[in-house]
Design a binder for these strands. Structure first.
Length: 300
DNA sequence: AAGCGAACCTGGCTGC
DNA sequence: TGCAGCCAGGTTCGCT
């Protein structure tokens, strides 16, 4: 279930567990996820030292020595678990769950497609039932020209994402606000949940035409300003919630980044609107083949 | 040419 | 209990 805040939390957890460590070996248990793994993937990683783990939109970047970067995406169902010697045999731990009958070919579960073995006994397990994620290797210097990164728009938490940027890039667009927020070429990293939540916070209808925020009126400028503010606030709040609900960014079982959210609109169909003073009911509609949740009373 | 729907894949839930 | 149908948080591709 990874959107930007989850990816950010996973990155922080991986950074903590991996930085300054050495990759001893890598198990790769199938030829592909969404795309084929690069040629000799385990061989090219073995012996590399990890320098840091960062994020671009929903992509995880593991910077290695020798000018190499491991690029990863979690897709819809990708997750990481960190196993260390001291917690790998606690009751309820991953090992215990596996022992209960979910053991796959490599001993880490049916969908554990990649295992990174680090020095000092740490194992990083990547599982991904739907296999929409992927991993690739790229020269660090050429990172930004990777086909998946070069097309991305601005970071939603960066300074470039502001009302002026929104107005400039929404100008003339006949698509809906909901659809344009999901367009990674404009703002990179907003997914279905936080698109709904940002529009709820901004009091803007998901069906409103994107172009309407670029008009000359004071009202249009206000709407763009609000949207920029609320995109930032909803993502920041979610990252904070993730960081504070996870000890060292991982729960006791070593699962990274999957904290409990409370959403105001997303998945709240039929619930009373949570905006103070609003007596609307959250509605679900489908836009561009995706569920949208919003309050028809206060989102205009 | 922008914008939409389909496709990629598995698992979990709902309702008959 | 079984099974069909629907739904899922991402991204790219191809058609109109």
């Amino acid at each position: 279930m990874p959107e930007l805040p989850e990816v950010e939390t996973v990155c922080r957890g991986l950074d903590q567990a991996m930085t300054s460590r050495k990759i001893i070996s890598v198990d790769q248990n199938r030829p592909n996820l969404r795309f084929p793994f690069p040629k000799n993937f385990p061989g090219r990683l073995a012996g590399r030292k990890i320098e840091r783990v960062t994020r671009r939109a929903k992509y995880i970047l593991v910077e290695l020595d020798a000018g190499l970067t491991l690029l990863m995406h979690l897709g819809m169902s990708g997750r990481f678990e960190i196993l260390t010697d001291d917690k790998s045999h606690k009751p309820g731990s991953f090992h215990q769950k596996i022992a209960a009958g979910q053991k796959g070919v490599n001993g880490f579960g049916k969908h554990a497609h990649v295992v990174f073995y680090l020095d000092e006994g740490t194992k990083i397990v990547y599982s991904d039932p739907r296999r929409f994620g992927f991993m690739d290797l790229v020269k660090t210097k050429e990172r930004d020209s990777h086909p998946n990164l070069k097309v991305l728009g601005v970071e939603p938490l960066g300074n470039e994402m502001n009302a002026d940027y929104i107005r400039e890039h929404f100008r003339g667009k006949q698509t809906s606000l909901k659809a344009i927020l999901l367009n990674q070429k404009i703002i990179a990293g907003i997914g279905n949940i936080y698109a709904c939540e940002a529009l709820f916070r901004a009091g803007l209808s998901p069906a409103r035409k994107a172009a309407s925020l670029a008009l000359k009126s004071t009202k249009a400028k206000e709407r763009a300003e609000n949207l920029a503010i609320e995109i930032r606030s909803v993502l920041t709040d979610a990252i904070q919630a993730g960081g504070s609900s996870l000890r060292d960014f991982a729960n006791v079982e070593g699962d990274l980044g999957y904290f409990q959210h409370t959403f105001q609109a997303y998945d709240q169909e039929g619930e009373a609107c949570k905006r103070p003073g609003c007596y609307g009911v959250i509605k679900r509609i489908v836009q561009n083949n995706r569920s949208t949740f919003f309050c028809p009373s206060c989102q205009k």
